[in-house]
Design a protein around this nucleic acid. Structure first.
Lengths: 366, 366
DNA sequence: TCACGGAACATTAACGTTAATGTCCCGAAC
DNA sequence: GTTCGGGACATTAACGTTAATGTTCCGTGA
């Protein structure tokens, strides 16, 4: 692994008896260079395997062709998809991705900001912990274009793109109601973030519009220990415990709307242990449409999140912010999720295993 | 978002009537600086909110405090966990992470190498596509320390850490045999990568040691379309189709060992459609211990991968490579996965839904 | 014929940091 | 009292690139 020194513009210039600047302009396609010279330069660059040093480039330009991507937890499948789509679109536009994981910790957020500033990223895409907006203020004071992802911090006035979780919660609830549910319980994580609050707001709106009451205890919180399990997504286990508590109630709900598909797993288990059938005894509506959800038994009705679209728009918003022009699209964008109807809310075919077969074509989890 | 210009060493130097070099040495804790001066410099740096420019630092040092992390697919939960653990450990050692997604494409690999070279990363951790070792040769010729992750390319002689998949395949198979299986089928992805070949080798070794034959058709391949589904992990759907084909055979196997837990989902579904029970009619052993696998019904016996350990060791190996010292540990490291026994291979308690309850404490999916 | 414009290149400076030398001055040792 | 060593700082150079100016020379037009 002993490295031959990397070739620089100076090497090429020396070899061809040209100035460094000429070589630079020749390679970067600027004008004022004769076609013969340009060809010679390109040939020599090719010959020695010249790779431009983007560190030096960044220094003189004042910013790097790099986006900072700050994510709370890559093991959350939604964020994993976001990472993929953002990386691809950023790469398409010539940007690399500096990835930082905050693991829902504000302290890590502060460090991430430091890191972003040090490396003079060209911009950043951030899922904030939402404990405080403060860490992110520094980005605007030094002029780092920033787009908030999935969780907004309205105080900052940054561009934002995320899922319309209010609509998601509404659609999930409305669907349950349309299938005959009258008493509905929500199982949500206990994090103080807007995504969850929005889903609950959507739930309440759907209930109100249907003239249904939301008694105390309708919103159950699944304890999640922030910071403890860095590399793992939510645990179905915690949801299982909460679900068991709920199932000890005298009057059981007709349907449960959960905050993510992992919770649905815990709930499925709790129901199975109690000998209750989905959907006949209780309907279950998930959130997130994880790849496995179509394959549970029964297949889970769930809300599919527009991960790819959100990721793409995040990059586009950031590029617009960098370009500085007033953009055609609004500064804040909420993408609508879609309901994927499966058997966990379908009482007409429930219990028939053969129903799975008809699902062959219907399982369009993208 | 109009940026106040960022403060530099020069600003601090000017404010205190010192030279830039003195300020630099004062802040970086080098000696040859009076304690009073050092204190004054630190105070001023604090006051103006000085953030060192690591681009300039990287330029003069010749390499950045950045690791390149090249991953095929972040939506694979195993890789998602690797990303988390690697990011954390790299950060602990002061390194940032430049993330690149190859999506199993050699062309993207070539571009990733270019990108790594441009940004003069301090080192790189790579999951190669294993189509060819060529893209990665360039890293060693210019002296970029590189560690291969999860998939080795022995020709290159790089350090490597991964799961002992041969052992994983062996343990899965041996377990099935110990539970009474005699005829076993393997369901694997059809990618030409060593991880899969190793698992199959482990399967064959276990069968051979037990004196069991491996007739034609024992290894079934699930077609996966590389490049097509960037943001998604494996599709249970494809496994479902292959499993249905298998279940049309005259003689069915006692057990199926699958290459990942998603495939187990497809298999579960195919069995359910055929009216076959797990584990009584057929045992199922998964691979990967995804967070949901403990919550399937029946809970899936599977092979748990040492993601966190592998990630940590990858960073450690890279740090050793950078330090240049002969390391205490071997250049190639295989970490043993562990079998997690659940009910999909437990014929003594199968069918009893109450068995789920006893699992409350046993579901130690970390 | 000569001034002029512009194409094609060279030269200089700058980005912000670190490393290698230089300079100054003060105290200690002979 | 002079020299010498070294602490505390300054000065200079360098990393590899891009941007702003210079310089040369040749063809063109009056």
């Amino acid at each position: 692994m002993a490295g031959a020194r990397r070739h620089t513009l100076r090497d090429i210039a020396a070899a061809l008896n040209l100035s460094v600047n000429t070589v630079s302009r020749a390679l970067s396609g600027k004008d004022g260079i004769g076609e013969k010279t340009r060809a010679r330069v390109r040939a020599e660059a090719e010959r020695v395997g010249y790779v431009p040093n983007s560190v030096a480039r960044s220094l003189v330009l004042g910013s790097a062709m790099t986006f900072g991507l700050v994510i709370t937890n890559p093991s959350n499948p939604f964020y994993a998809q976001l990472i993929s789509s953002i990386e691809l679109r950023a790469r398409t536009h010539g940007y690399s991705l500096l990835l930082m994981v905050t693991d829902e910790s504000e302290e890590n957020e502060t460090r991430a900001v430091e890191s972003l500033l040090r490396s003079s990223v060209g911009g950043s895409i951030v899922v904030p912990v939402q404990a405080s907006a403060d860490p992110w203020r520094r980005l605007s004071t030094v002029g780092v274009p920033t787009v908030l992802l999935n969780r907004d911090l309205p105080d900052l006035g940054y561009r934002f793109v995320g899922t319309d979780n209010e609509l998601g919660g509404y659609r999930a609830t409305e669907h349950a109601i349309s299938r005959g549910a009258r008493s509905i319980v929500v199982l949500e994580e206990d994090l103080p973030i807007t995504t969850i609050a929005d889903r609950i707001a959507g739930f309440r709106r759907a209930m109100a519009e249907a003239g249904l009451s939301v008694p105390r205890g309708s919103i159950m919180r699944v304890p999640t220990r922030r910071h403890e399990q860095a590399a793992l997504p939510w645990q179905p286990q915690q949801a299982y415990q909460v679900a068991r508590r709920m199932l000890r109630r005298a009057r059981l709900p007709d349907a449960v709307v959960v905050g993510n598909d992992y919770f649905a797993l815990g709930l499925y288990r709790a129901l199975e242990v109690r000998g209750l059938k989905v959907p006949d005894d209780m309907m279950v509506i998930g959130y997130g449409d994880h790849p496995y959800s179509a394959f549970l038994s029964p297949p889970l009705t769930t809300v599919r999140l527009p991960a790819e679209e959100v990721g793409n728009i995040a990059v586009d918003l950031l590029l617009e912010e960098i370009a500085g022009g007033r953009s055609a699209r609004p500064l804040k964008q909420l993408i609508a999720p879609t309901l994927v109807e499966r058997e966990s809310t379908d009482r007409t075919t429930s219990g028939r295993t053969s129903s799975a077969a008809k699902n062959d074509s219907g399982m369009t989890s993208r």
